[in-house]
Design a binder for these strands. Structure first.
Length: 731
DNA sequence: GGCGGCGAACTG
DNA sequence: AGTTCGCCGCCC
């Protein structure tokens, strides 16, 4: 009698054994329905064997093994086991949360994707006068004019339309204004000749293609506009020719519709599957199955796509590899970039990490020779020049409402020349740190590369990494100025201020909230593209890679907040973000200008930025990290606890720290004090964290393994929820 | 995570 | 006595 070992979606790190008379070794990776307590549930068979340590009276029989779709491939199961070990997350939850929702249901119906057809306007519809439609039927009128202008609505666009618009379209069909036409493959994609690569691009492509049959990690460091995408495309083309599959990971797919379009257009013969959070369960399953069957030549997706089964995997690309969104922030806290490396190694294929500003982790790997470094120094579009970057010294120039005179003048000039501007508000990394306005001194921790946080109630400065505390000094210890203040300025009124300064300008604000609505981001891009916007105001989002061809001016406000953030990675992130946002300016034939309002124009970051010198700045930061023993020269994990009141979270972490002393490898790791975490938007609950450092990943892992088991048995954790975060990014 | 067991506390 | 609520341990 065979025994199957099954992964179930329960927060207990073990497999559950069941009797399965008809099971064989070929059933590993299949879905199975099993009785579990009072319920039935669906799991994945991870192994098949003949004996078990579970007492016979407890052993139940599996109800049914599903053979409707092929089993998950062994490589994927290996990846799950690695996640389980490395991230210390229950195996069942790793497995069940990484497969499409639909595969977790008992009943699996695979409906074929509906045949794609476009809604094409008829002659009758073309001759209609849109103004005959009553003005109050705005949507109707708009739909008709759109059809008259574009001639058709392709299936992708139809999918994205609101229910109301779809209803209208069916009305039009009944009126014979439109007709449904089957989509002719390749018809709507106007084939334009791909640009011929620059010598630099050619060198990169050749280097990668010289070694495609083995694991080879490449760091493709290319400045904004240098044409990294073209390198991806060319290498992809070569691997598609070898019948291999390509996995392309991007930070947020809905923010980069151009990339998807470019791949689809370049490879009209290839099935391009895109996987992201915007899909419904059916679409997700559809794409996943195409990938699993090897039919999808290209899989393009966000971090979760790293778990896609790819039998013919031949290449992985991680675009904007430094982007924080590759790290999952709840549940299984994985880094899709790091898992991509694991997969490439496992499959013996090349992986390209692309970035204009690589993460210090990847850059250090390249410097150490673990990764192979490729550089693109020049912009791909001939004639396109790098923007001029200038600082406006806030100590010398007044900034009423946050906007200085030179900045307003520059905006006015751009307006009068009908060129677009971008006003970038940096909100990240704001925390009350203590700052001296006259000399720029900041209260810093002596033990960490972090800044101390002001706790006004307690009249104390605290380090959020190691727990060090001291009283707030009466005056600046550097220059004696008593005027030292918690740092930070309001950003809410910037948009209003801009409106009052430029009443005639068309100003568009872009932030998380304003693009939450589906496809709102696309309409923003369109509005900018169609010159319906003069000034874009927004946050991090605007730094992501888009072509805004008529953008000539980028203004950066209150960047300093990040500079003195308590997060030791904030400066790295700020630099990356500013390099990106600066790259928005002057991409085509318009020379760009970047203005930065800062109190610290001589800060090395702005100096490096104005020279557009990633390397020297990265090396400076790396030296700092090395001196303070921070990543990438140390490995971190953080134990987080959350409770209704901070004290119970801290008390739990205190106990955790106490039992840590008895754990394996305690001598090889460094435990910081439990500290309150920077406030997260978790309603009502308060969080605290305990940071663990180690110089060896192996020692850290061995310690964590032991520690985590003891934490489970730590009884008095009532109302305290806790989790481990390995390689945490935001502390 | 979901469910049942169990004791404490509450009810009229 | 009957009921409800919150904690706790198990699920193969």
């Amino acid at each position: 009698m065979a025994i199957i070992r099954v992964a179930l979606d329960v927060p207990v790190d073990c497999l559950f054994d069941y009797l399965a008379p008809d099971a064989s070794i070929t059933d590993i990776g299949l879905r199975v329905c099993v009785p579990f307590g009072k319920r039935r549930t669906l799991g994945i068979i991870l192994s098949v064997c003949t004996d078990t340590s579970v007492p016979g009276n407890k052993l139940k029989q599996a109800e049914r093994i599903y053979r409707d779709i092929p089993p998950l491939p062994p490589a994927l199961l290996e990846l799950f086991k690695f996640c389980n070990r490395y991230y210390h997350h229950p195996i069942g939850q790793v497995v069940m949360n990484s497969i499409p929702n639909r595969l977790r249901q008992f009943k699996l119906t695979i409906d074929q994707p509906s045949r794609a057809f476009a809604w094409v306007i008829t002659d009758k519809g073309r001759l209609l006068d849109a103004t005959d439609i009553p003005a109050r039927s705005r949507a109707k009128r708009l739909l008709l004019t759109t059809l008259q202008d574009n001639g058709q609505i392709p299936p992708e666009a139809f999918k994205q339309m609101s229910a109301h618009n779809r209803k209208l379209l069916r009305e039009f069909l009944a009126l014979d204004w439109v007709t449904q036409m089957p989509l002719v493959p390749g018809l709507p994609t106007a084939q334009t000749e791909p640009p011929s690569p620059t010598p630099e691009q050619n060198a990169a492509i050749a280097a990668i293609l010289a070694d495609t049959g083995m694991f080879a990690p490449w760091l493709l460091h290319g400045i904004t506009g240098s044409g990294k995408t073209e390198v991806y495309l060319r290498v992809t083309a070569a691997l598609l020719k070898q019948q291999r599959q390509v996995l392309l990971l991007v930070p947020e797919i809905n923010l980069t519709p151009q990339l998807e379009a470019r791949f689809k257009q370049r490879f009209p013969e290839t099935a391009v599957v895109s996987l992201h959070s915007g899909l419904n369960d059916n679409e997700r399953l559809q794409g996943w199955l195409l990938a699993q069957q090897g039919k999808a030549g290209i899989v393009l997706g966000t971090r979760l796509a790293v778990f896609t089964p790819l039998p013919e995997l031949g290449l992985i690309v991680v675009d904007e590899e430094q982007d924080l969104s590759f790290k999952q922030q709840d549940g299984l806290r994985y880094s899709a970039r790091d898992l991509a490396i694991y997969r490439a190694k496992q499959a013996g294929v090349p992986i390209i990490l692309g970035s204009a500003t690589p993460s210090l982790e990847s850059y250090q790997h390249a410097l150490a020779g673990h990764y192979r470094l490729l550089r693109l120094h020049s912009r791909a579009v001939s004639g396109a020049t790098l923007p001029v970057i200038r600082c406006i010294d806030l100590r010398l120039t007044k900034a009423p409402e946050g906007l200085t005179e030179p900045l307003l003048t520059a905006l006015q000039t751009a307006l009068s020349q009908q060129q677009q501007s971008l006003v970038f508000i940096n909100r990240r990394g704001y925390a009350p740190v203590l700052l001296c306005k006259s000399c720029g001194w900041v209260a810093a921790c002596t033990r960490c590369s972090s800044r101390l946080v002001v706790h006004l109630h307690a009249r104390q400065l605290r380090c959020h990494y190691c727990g060090h505390q001291q009283t707030v000094p009466a005056a600046c210890p550097e220059c004696g100025d008593p005027d030292i203040l918690p740092f930070g300025q309001g950003t809410q009124r910037i948009e209003a201020a801009l409106r009052s300064h430029f009443p005639a300008a068309r100003i568009l604000r872009v932030d998380r909230d304003s693009i939450r609505r589906k496809h709102a981001w696309q309409s923003v891009l369109d509005a900018v593209q169609n010159q319906q916007v003069d000034i874009l105001v927004g946050t991090q989002l605007l730094a992501k890679g888009h072509d805004f061809p008529n953008l000539s001016l980028v203004c950066i406000l209150n960047a300093d907040a990040s500079l003195y953030s308590t997060d030791f990675r904030a400066e790295e992130q700020l630099f990356a973000q500013l390099m990106q946002v600066a790259g928005r300016a002057g991409r085509a034939d318009i020379p760009g200008t970047v203005l930065i309002q800062t109190e610290f124009p001589h800060h090395p970051l702005y100096q490096a930025l104005s020279r557009q010198n990633y390397d020297s700045h990265a090396r400076t930061l790396l030296r700092e990290r090395q001196l303070t023993h921070f990543p990438p020269f140390a490995y971190q994990a953080v134990l987080r606890a959350e409770a209704i009141v901070i004290d119970s979270a801290l008390a739990f972490l205190g106990k955790a720290a106490k039992i840590a002393t008895a754990c394996e490898q305690f001598g090889q790791i460094q435990l910081f004090d439990p500290v309150p975490a920077p406030m997260m938007r978790l309603k009502g609950r308060e969080r605290a964290q305990l940071l663990v450092h180690a110089h060896s990943r192996k020692h850290l892992q061995e310690f964590l393994f032991d520690w985590q088991q003891r934490l489970h048995t730590l009884a008095a954790q009532k109302k305290v929820r806790w989790h481990l975060d390995i390689d945490p990014l935001m502390l």
